[in-house]
Computed example of a mutant assay.
Amino acid sequence: MALVTAAVVVLDCAEPEKLAAFYKELLDAEETHASANRVEIKGTDGMRMAFRRDGNATPPSWPRPENAFQAHIDLHVDDLDAVELVVIGLGGRALETKDASGPFEERGYADPAGHSFTLRCVRSTAPKQG
């Protein structure tokens, strides 16, 4: 029997309802729990996140060195440009605009509460069939 039955990424923020709404839309998730100080969601792929109320929460400053990464999330996507439009439309903001080269292409963003996350496009290296 597993000792741990689920892992949940928890982000502290001033307004958990608003941050949960951002990630619910972005991840096509459903709300699984809500209380006065915490909202939990579960994505279609099973990813679980929670948002905990903390009136003193300080967002990470990344890419600036002071108070840099506290944690960040990598989100795998098929189309960076299309998902970027959704992120910006939901209230997220770009943290950097440089174009990553090589087999991985990624872009950094902040959610509406300032937590950093990366949209990452992994190109297949398998030979084409047919």
Rank of each mutant, 00 (worst) to 15 (best):
L27S: 10
A34C: 04
I41V: 15
G130Y: 06
H76Q: 12
L95Y: 01
H33K: 11
L90K: 14
L26V: 06
G43I: 10
L11T: 00
Q129C: 04
R53I: 04
M49V: 14
P127K: 14
A57M: 05
T32V: 15
F104H: 12
L95D: 06
G91L: 02
R120K: 01
T32C: 03
I41Q: 02
M49A: 15
S124W: 08
G130C: 13
M1D: 13
A21E: 02
F104Y: 09
T32G: 00
L95T: 00
S61P: 07
C13P: 05
L90T: 01
F51P: 06
A36Q: 09
L26S: 05
T58K: 15
R120Y: 04
F104S: 04
R93A: 10
S116K: 03
D79C: 11
A7P: 01
F22T: 07
P63H: 00
R53A: 14
L11H: 11
H115S: 03
R52C: 07
P65Y: 05
S124Q: 11
R120A: 01
A71E: 00
P112V: 05
C121E: 05
T5G: 02
A14W: 01
S35L: 03
P16S: 09
T5N: 12
E66C: 02
F22P: 08
N37V: 14
F51I: 13
A36G: 02
L90N: 06
K24S: 07
D74H: 08
S101Y: 11
L85C: 13
G55N: 11
A29D: 09
L85T: 14
D79Q: 09
E30M: 13
A71Y: 00
I73E: 06
W62N: 01
P65D: 14
V9Q: 09
D74V: 03
A2I: 08
P112C: 13
E66W: 10
V9K: 04
S61A: 15
P127I: 13
N67P: 07
G108T: 06
H115V: 00
P16F: 03
R48Y: 07
H72D: 04
K42H: 09
I88K: 12
S35N: 07
D81F: 03
L119A: 00
Q129E: 12
E106Q: 08
A100K: 11
A20L: 07
L95M: 11
P16N: 13
K42Q: 15
I41K: 05
F69L: 14
A6L: 07
D74G: 11
A50F: 04
F69K: 00
V87H: 09
L75C: 08
L27M: 12
P127M: 11
K128F: 11
G89K: 02
E84A: 13
L26T: 09
P16V: 11
D111E: 13
Y109N: 12
T118G: 03
R93Y: 00
L90M: 15
L80E: 08
D45C: 10
T58Y: 02
T32P: 00
T125L: 15
A2N: 09
V9E: 02
V83L: 14
R107T: 10
E25M: 07
D12M: 07
D54F: 06
A36L: 09
R64N: 13
N37Q: 10
A100V: 10
M49C: 12
A14N: 11
L85W: 06
G130N: 15
T32D: 10
V87C: 13
Q70D: 01
M47V: 12
W62K: 02
I41C: 01
R53K: 15
L11E: 02
